[in-house]
């Protein structure tokens, strides 16, 4: 399966040139760009690990791509990597754009557990296959 989080998961995988253009868009808007990675892409796993801190004063996408490549050296092929842009404007002060740049070679996806409870009620639990058997860091 292919997880479809992020703004551009329905498009073919992005080239570095395409990634750079999206990052430049964020930088030109004055947003700070961050690189994050995880081996547990559960839809409610909000806090992916940060690769360093958000880059606040970078003017050119090459600076972010430099870090993305550093991150790939360590986690490429084994983790999901995403780029997240933060807008500090009053009344927003949150993420403005987020998209996946890298995926592990294989994406096992999620299991849906159903627990039948009172009446016809069901309690649902989504679990990452990747996170089920192995600990963090040894999943892909």
């Amino acid at each position: 399966m292919r997880i479809t989080q992020g703004a551009f998961s329905f498009l073919p995988d992005l080239t570095d040139e395409q990634i750079a253009k999206q990052i430049q868009y964020c930088i030109d808007k004055g947003w700070a760009v961050n690189i994050e990675f995880t081996d547990d892409p559960h839809p409610r796993n909000t806090y992916w690990e940060m690769w360093g801190m958000p880059m606040f004063d970078v003017k050119d996408a090459a600076g972010v791509l430099f870090e993305l490549n550093e991150c790939r050296k360590t986690y490429g092929g084994r983790n999901y990597i995403r780029v997240t842009a933060f807008d500090s404007t009053h009344t927003w002060e949150s993420v403005r754009l987020s998209f996946i740049t890298d995926r592990p070679a294989e994406e096992p996806g999620f299991a849906l557990d159903r627990q039948e409870v009172d009446g016809r009620n069901v309690r649902y639990t989504t679990r990452s296959y990747a996170a089920m058997s192995r600990p963090e860091g040894a999943r892909y």
């Binding site: 399966m1 997880i3 479809t4 989080q5 892409p41 559960h42 839809p43 409610r44 996806g109 999620f110 299991a111 849906l112 016809r120 009620n121 069901v122 649902y124 989504t126």
Partner: peptide, 22 residues
């Protein structure tokens, strides 16, 4: 309404697991 809610939430959760998206 209860039928609608029960079947809709089955659908939502199943789609969530199928895509990894909320």
């Amino acid at each position: 309404w209860r039928e609608r809610f029960l079947y809709c939430m089955e659908a939502v959760n199943k789609a969530q697991a199928a895509t990894g998206e909320v």
